[in-house]
Amino acid sequence: MTITAEERRARILDAVRELGAVRVVDLAERLGFPAVTVRRDVAALADMGLVRRSHGAVSVPVSEGSDKPTGRSRGVGMLVPTVGSYFDEVIAGARSAAAASGTRLVLGVAAYGTSGDRAQVEQLVQSDVDGLLLTPDWMVDSDSEDGAWLCDLPVPTVLVERRAAAGSACAKLDGVSSDHRHGVLLALRHLATLGHSSVLLAARTDSWTAHQVRAGYEECVHRLGLEPQPVIDIRRPGADSDAVAAQIAEAAAAGVRAVLVHNDRDAIQLAPLLRARGLEVPDDVALISYDDVFAALAAPPLTAVSPPKRAVGAAAVDLLLRRLESGSSLPTHHVELLPELKIRASSDSAR
């Protein structure tokens, strides 16, 4: 897989910071990049003051009389609720944008439901960062009322994949997120064009994105003139799939033969469970997944709503750097990026 120069240089920086000092040829071998490419990237990083070159070796620059690296003009702390799926791509986008601007990225993780946001943010602030990218553990927009402490942080803050409620204290914070309601509209409109007059939604209950998908479903069913259906709750992700399949099969018997599932993990498990009930995807049930992290790997490959995860991370870094440069002269930005619909085999039997 081809990677960008920014991603390559970010890997080089990580390796140098881990090793302290390393020969360029050894660095190239360790990372699996051509030595000539690594030399060129090291030269560019050295020009930005992020590394130091000396006699064929590269190291983190250290100021005289100090054990702290120099040349790091900025540091950005990033708090996410999980790693290993959706937010991996958000982090990758932020990491590439940070590396391209000579900014170090410091990561913190506060898992859903652990009330660990505040402790992680305090740790990030203590790591000498100039600004923060935060994904607080909110379920719905109104939860931002409980996050007023975010407005008192000593450094500029950008919300990532979260939107503060209008009029709340956090509404004055910058933010970059996916427009998940638009993503739901894309999915339901596609199914409507295939002739479906009613679409089920099976959705998780444990994340802000899930609640945005649910709200989008309610809005878009009305907007498109579809027959509304009760939402199927996925309360135990990965463990409720058999019960969800049973409810989809029951609805299919009543003529509802299209379903949007949040998210990939649960959607991927449904095809074999539906087959065991005599229903084939897509011939008997059209299936669309929300998130598009693993959807293309399913059998059959799943049509999926694909939020611009990497672009969200990159845009959040860019906005934060603009805020650091401009201060209060920059108006508050609430940026929403539009998802895409990736059409694959699971939604249209004619395909």
Rank of each mutant, 00 (worst) to 15 (best):
A314S: 15
A210N: 15
P307F: 03
P136E: 07
D284A: 10
S198Y: 13
L124M: 11
A46R: 08
W138G: 04
S101K: 03
P81I: 02
G175F: 04
P237A: 05
H333D: 04
L260Y: 12
V16G: 04
H211C: 11
A271K: 05
D266V: 01
P136L: 07
G238T: 01
G278R: 05
A35K: 08
L200D: 08
V90S: 12
V244M: 00
A345G: 11
E325Y: 10
T205Q: 05
V256C: 12
R204E: 13
A164S: 15
M78C: 14
Q126R: 07
E336V: 05
T205K: 01
T205V: 04
S59Q: 09
I343P: 01
E64I: 06
R23K: 03
L201V: 01
L338P: 02
A46K: 03
V160Q: 10
T209P: 09
G167Q: 06
A164D: 15
K342H: 15
L124F: 10
L201D: 00
G313M: 15
H333F: 00
V281Y: 10
A243H: 03
K309V: 13
R40M: 07
D348S: 11
A245T: 12
A44C: 07
V285G: 04
G278L: 02
A110I: 03
R17P: 07
